[in-house]
Design a protein around this nucleic acid. Structure first.
Lengths: 144, 144
DNA sequence: TAATGAGTGTTATGAAATAACATAATAGGA
DNA sequence: TCCTATTATGTTATTTCATAACACTCATTA
């Protein structure tokens, strides 16, 4: 978990950017959470130490972290989750359990290639790809 | 385009549901648009005849139409688009052009199967799948 | 030391979606 | 037919998600 922060720092440095205080704070909170979080939960959590934290601060940090691939935004429900494979810039698929809400991150090069070629046969040049699943994770299936 | 409405009616009947006035209205507007629309654009457009149309009316219609697969919600930017292959209940991938904003709908059974099995090897049982792309469509690529 | 640029703080507002409750329309059964 | 249950809509208000705009800080460098 502190690994993640260290990796993040290294990654920023390589990219010529800096992991400033608010960015690090947001990443720490996300990394400590076992489920994806809403932006406003982050905002109140980040403000739990003395000073107030306001929406733009957190949204800016999230934009930054998402761009570096350190955090993923789950489009279906506007939540954010820290990336497992810190540092990879490849796209991932995110499977979210409807029961426990935990997110499973999966690399999917093969799938991406299929989609890319499916798009290309229609003359469409892919720049960004979002793949999100909903369902039931193993733990919840066994518990039921 | 009127085909779509007729198909929609048939589909509703088969499902034991009804294509009521507001639902039909929303579907018509979406079908007439060549790009995906935001909910609030629909709301004002639907209100252009005399009577005011309010958010819940349109959101309810959208929920209904999405459930029947007559409309798709694009999660990335919260827009809605009428379905091409009216009646299919299989999932589709949506590729949205960053220039002209038009959406291309693509069936992807093979990709879905890959993702499903990728999920299953992790014990994850998929119930819903969202696949969305962003990029440049053929027309815009040629125009540039 | 001025000028630049990147980042943050703050106020205010815009945009997307839904809760809660009242009302209407419709279909089925006695 | 009349009652009742169900389904859908109308309406008000509010919640949730996100960003615009501008002032300020602080490090870098010319």
């Amino acid at each position: 978990m502190h690994d993640l922060i260290r990796e993040a720092e290294a990654l920023c440095q390589r990219a010529g950017m800096t992991l400033t205080a608010p960015r690090r704070r947001v990443l720490e909170i996300l990394a400590a959470s076992d489920t994806p979080m809403k932006a406003y939960d982050l905002i109140s959590k980040a403000g739990e130490d003395g000073r107030a934290t306001k929406p733009p601060t957190v949204y800016r940090a999230l934009d930054f972290l998402c761009q570096l691939g350190l955090v993923h935004r789950i489009e279906q429900d506007a939540t954010f989750v820290a990336c497992n494979h810190a540092g990879h810039t490849q796209p991932v698929a995110l499977f979210v359990c409807n029961s426990c809400l935990k997110a499973t991150e999966v690399a999917y090069d093969d799938v991406a290639q299929m989609l890319e070629s499916a798009a290309l046969t229609r003359g469409f040049q892919l720049q960004r790809l979002v793949i999100e699943g909903r369902g039931q994770c193993q733990d919840c299936a066994l518990a039921a």
